[in-house]
Design a protein around this nucleic acid. Sequence first.
RNA 1: GCACCCGUAGCUCAGCUGGAUAGAGCGCUGCCCUCCGAAGGCAGAGGUCGCGCGUUCGAAUCGCGCCGGGUGCACCA
Length: 581
Amino acid sequence: MNLFTDIRTLVIENLTLLQAEGVLPAGLDFKNVAVEPPRDPLHGDMATNAAMVLAKPAKMKPRDIAEALAGKLAADGRIDSADVAGPGFLNMRLAATLWQDVIATAIAQGPDFGRSDMGQGRKVNVEFVSANPTGPLHVGHTRGAVFGDALASLLDFSGHEVTREYVINDGGSQIDTLARSVYLRYLEAHGQEVSFPEGVYPGDYLIPVGQALKDKVGDKYVDQPEDIWLEDLRNFGTDKMMDLIREDMAALGVKMDVFFSEKSLYGTGKIEECLNTLDKKGLIYQGTLPPPKGKELTDWEPREQTLFRSTLHGDDVDRPVKKSDGSWTYFAPDIAYHYDKVLRDYDELIDVFGADHGGYVKRMKAAVSALSDGKVPLDIKLCQLVRLFKDGEPFKMSKRAGTFVMLRDLIDLVGADVTRFVMLTRKNDAPLDFDFSKALEQSKDNPVFYVQYAHARVRSVFRKAEAAGIAVDDATLKAADLTLINHEAELTVAKKLAEWPRLVEIAARTNEPHRIAFYLYELAADFHALWNRGNDLPELRFLQEGDIATSQAKIALIRSVSIVISAGLSILGVTPAEEMR
RNA sequence: GCACCCGUAGCUCAGCUGGAUAGAGCGCUGCCCUCCGAAGGCAGAGGUCGCGCGUUCGAAUCGCGCCGGGUGCACCA
């Protein structure tokens, strides 16, 4: 249920009625008629712009339309009052029973309250993380991982059929580097002194991989030329790195549905097939690109190569798919990979990339547009950088090898729940400051704590109620006399709960899970405010001595608060707190 | 040079398919615990929404042009 769409339906019914009565002309388009919460709650519970958007096509004054509509709406039992304001806004006050119904619905639907069918079962593929299999995940990957996972959950919650996918870049030359790095660790495991020249990965995490290789093959590869061991070590290294990455993701609570191997595209004719498809559309040609501008290139010279005419699909320049020596560029298998997704019949594709891939967006969209004839939208979400702080100072982790802060370090320091929530308190295209000390601080300055605290407070009331012998199971609460919930402070919370289904749809439509985090903060604030009103007004306390019916009604209200907080946190991948410690 | 992102209160940031007097938190000022957890709440002060033009009944939001900051430009992956 979504109260806003219910009321919008009511508004449109009455507009139609006005047409039938000849007050409004026929043939009006109602699609721009919106029902929203007014910015200022003093104006009412809901407002509609109907009169203003219809004024021009109906050739009437907005206020006249609004007056006529107000007359109709005021007659409906659900509307306490409908007033015309300003240039033609229609402000409505809703009957208290509607807000009380929200509570009953929340309890009846439990974790599914707010679930939407707006996705209509559309198949969406969310590709995220996709870190090169050359080492463990670091902070930058973490943001993408959290974002992608939360977005996938959000889309699932709003009626999409979601696939979480990771593409393993196991086909490129960075895997040669990995293989050589593993080889050095392998020699080291055999007691050799090794040095790590430029261009290999020096990280400690490869030490056990070298050891494992020794355990597996003994001294078979010692002092052998590269062509003997390279292919084997590419596979061995990639497998070990993917194990590591899977463990990292598991520690963060991220689980993929599909791991797609880029290598599987090579030698199977898939890339060729994809490029043939483009060729048939006249989008492949032999040509020479102009030199890149604004950059001093000393070794640049014009070369003829195979190009994809991406400019016909919105890109700035055409892009090479083959190098001058005839081998594929990185872009070629990536096009083929996205073609594979299109062929797998997804209705929509989403890629979550790091901000450093910004230059890749247009060409990828161009490729998907070309391959699907514009039928499959591709949305690319770029996650900006994460800057680490401690006590307000930039933070660097001292690591023997490398200055990256690893995902594991984050989780060890603050835990997966805090990491996830903090990463989602900023929209993806804004840089994120992550302050360790703040993330662990127990104050309202820390949104993670603030939301968790609200949930813990609800649970605390439940424990007290149970100790007092009051039944607080959902079946009992659902049957509670909710007309006892009628104080303005309580209805404020119920109204915030009513926004939840609408908020979910907005967040899903924009692919912006951070809106969930901000909403939860607002809901927590309304709840904390109500809690404290109980200090001054004893009748607002949730437990009313000797009045079980009222207590149960009030507990039903805060039960629905905890339901929504749990549902929201579940989308973000965070576990709600039972109590604060 | 070009592309993308950002610019909103002293600071960090929200702001819905364009809606009314632009909202939070921190910081500042003053209040509220014999009370379901004060780890919290209430109130006050604080804004040319970077600048200009345009579209519109209406612009922080859309378009164009500037200014400032970030990221990226290749036969790398």
